[in-house]
């Protein structure tokens, strides 16, 4: 009788631990999804700002059409990108294009003095920071989630219920270098 009770208590405890680990995994996976959506919100904010910027800047920048076109092209590519890796690569390219555009703006005194431009520049600087912070938050979440999936004993439950590693939002190495602009 006593042995039976002990067995029952052990089984109950085991089941409770199982449920706890499973629920913890689901919560973490949802947090990763939510963090990913936060990046999406900020990326959309940037996509929406770019047409305004191009509109304001294009009249001043007669000789710099190429830089502008690069930004527009990078934006269109970013709009159609899918998946974590594809989005990361396209958005990285857009970040690079925007940086060289702002480096060029620095060379135009009237442009720098324009109130609309400085407002847009602040908005875009802020958006760049938001994207970077949202990415940092997402990557931290992915690290926590992936670690939980890989460590014992939650790895047993993760593998039997199909929890899979999430991809990090990584910037291509080329985009991490500072921009070099040739101003003749």
């Amino acid at each position: 009788m006593a042995a039976f009770v002990v067995l029952l208590v052990l089984l109950g405890g085991f089941a409770l631990a199982l449920v706890g680990i499973y629920n913890g995994l689901v919560t973490l996976r949802n947090q990763v999804k939510n963090a990913w959506q936060q990046i999406g919100v900020q990326l959309k904010r940037r996509h929406d700002l770019i047409p305004n910027l191009v509109e304001v800047v294009k009249d001043y920048m007669g000789y710099e059409q190429e830089t502008l076109e690069k930004v527009i092209r990078a934006r269109n590519q970013a709009l159609s990108a899918t998946g974590v890796q594809g989005t990361a690569a396209a958005e990285g390219a857009l970040t690079g294009a925007l940086r060289s555009l702002f480096a060029v703006v620095e060379a135009y005194p009237q442009l720098k003095a324009n109130e609309n431009v400085s407002k847009l520049q602040e908005e875009l600087t802020s958006t760049e920071n938001r994207i970077a912070f949202a990415r940092q938050f997402y990557n931290d979440m992915v690290m926590r989630y992936n670690t939980r999936i890989q460590v014992f004993p939650s790895n047993l439950i993760a593998s039997s219920f199909g929890f899979k590693d999430e991809a990090y939002f990584e910037i291509p190495a080329a985009e991490q270098e500072p921009v070099k602009v040739d101003l003749r």
Partner: peptide, 16 residues
């Protein structure tokens, strides 16, 4: 104070 609000909103994203 757009810059102040922007910076704080950025940090809210970083910290949750």
């Amino acid at each position: 104070e757009p810059v102040l609000h922007n910076i704080v909103e950025e940090l809210c994203l970083a910290s949750g």
